[in-house]
């Protein structure tokens, strides 16, 4: 089960990512839990599998429009489907990788798996209740889903 400090690590990771990569802060919405069924996701979802001392997944899910703007902020002109997937995976990877600062080396992160679908559902790999951290950036909404045993 996650504690407050641990979730804060992920929130900080997300905030830091936007601050550094897009030079525009992200507003964190009030976090909540998924109590029944799988969490809903946006068009693109980057999933990082977590193994080692903790097991589960960290996902970053965002709509296409947001990724588009994010790419532009990063001076990337190529907004192909491949680059969208690449970006969503990289964000998830960066936030998860940064979490090792607090979780340590036994927090083993996988290479990103990217799911692209219209308002699909994401099924967390473990039984823990997923924490949803809503992220509001400019006019867009994204979510960080942290699901760790």
């Amino acid at each position: 089960m996650l504690n407050e400090g641990e979730i804060r690590t992920f929130i900080q990771g997300a905030v830091h990512y936007f601050e550094v990569s897009a030079r525009q802060p992200v507003a964190v919405g009030s976090p909540y839990l998924i109590t029944d069924g799988p969490p809903s996701v946006h068009e693109y979802t980057g999933v990082i599998g977590i193994s080692g001392k903790r097991k589960g997944a960290v996902c970053f899910t965002a709509p296409r429009s947001m990724l588009m703007v994010l790419l532009m902020r990063m001076n990337e002109t190529d907004t192909s489907e491949d680059n969208m997937k690449d970006l969503i995976g990289e964000v998830a990877n960066t936030i998860s990788g940064n979490a090792r600062r607090d979780f340590g080396r036994d927090f083993v992160i996988s290479v990103p798996t990217v799911v692209a679908s219209d308002n699909g559902k994401f099924t967390p790999p473990v039984g823990a209740r997923p924490f949803i951290i809503p992220l509001n950036w400019r006019s867009h909404s994204a979510k960080l889903i942290v699901c760790l045993e």
Partner: peptide, 18 residues
């Protein structure tokens, strides 16, 4: 108040659920 301030509540809620 901002959204992140609600984090302790979510953690407590999670704990209460558990």
């Amino acid at each position: 108040l901002s959204g992140g301030d609600f984090l302790p509540l979510v953690v407590k809620l999670d704990d209460l659920f558990t």
